[in-house]
């Protein structure tokens, strides 16, 4: 009854900022980034891309509560680049990978078009037979 509306999981509220960066005052070159209305799909991908960057010392994420639709990403760098910049870099790398992937898929599908257009066998199973006809006689509806 008191569950939040499911669309609140992915729709930004009016004036809500998608990303908020909180600089860490106790650890050098570190920042905590709060990304709202996103889940593991983006968080884990970003974390792994950040870890693949040599200047990143630490990158980790958590979704503090499954009913609260945001995640927190913590980044520490070696000082040659700020956490915000390295995150930006990671994002562009990911977009690059996705674009490359799209091109690869396009190419692969263009080879497959001929085979894919015609499906020889019926993938959904045989056609259904209509309902059985009742043997004559009457039932309670006839009265």
């Amino acid at each position: 009854m008191n569950a939040p509306n499911r669309s609140e999981l992915f729709v930004l509220e009016d004036g809500e900022k998608a990303v908020e960066i909180i600089e860490d005052t106790k650890i050098p070159n570190a920042a905590t980034i709060k990304v709202v209305k996103q889940d593991h799909t983006l968080a884990n991908m970003l974390r792994s891309q950040l870890l693949a960057t040599p200047s990143v010392l630490f990158a980790g994420y958590k979704v503090p509560h499954p009913l609260q639709p945001y995640f927190i990403l913590k980044i520490q760098t070696d000082g040659t680049i700020t956490p915000a910049d390295v995150l930006q870099q990671a994002c562009s790398k990911l977009i690059g990978t996705l674009t490359a992937l799209e091109a690869k898929f396009k190419r692969e599908f263009s080879f497959k078009d001929v085979e894919g257009a015609v499906v020889s066998e019926d993938p959904y199973g045989g056609p259904s037979t209509g309902g059985p006809t009742w043997a004559g006689g009457r039932d309670y509806l006839d009265f």
Binding site: K17, V19, Q38, D39, L94, F105, K106
Partner: peptide
């Protein structure tokens, strides 16, 4: 199936929201 796979790189969480985050960080 082709549309599903092709939409991934174009649509939501994947690229779109990365790009959104980029914008906000800028």
């Amino acid at each position: 199936p082709q549309e599903v796979v092709m939409k991934v790189s174009k649509h939501p969480s994947a690229s779109c929201h990365c790009a959104e985050s980029l914008e906000f960080i800028n």
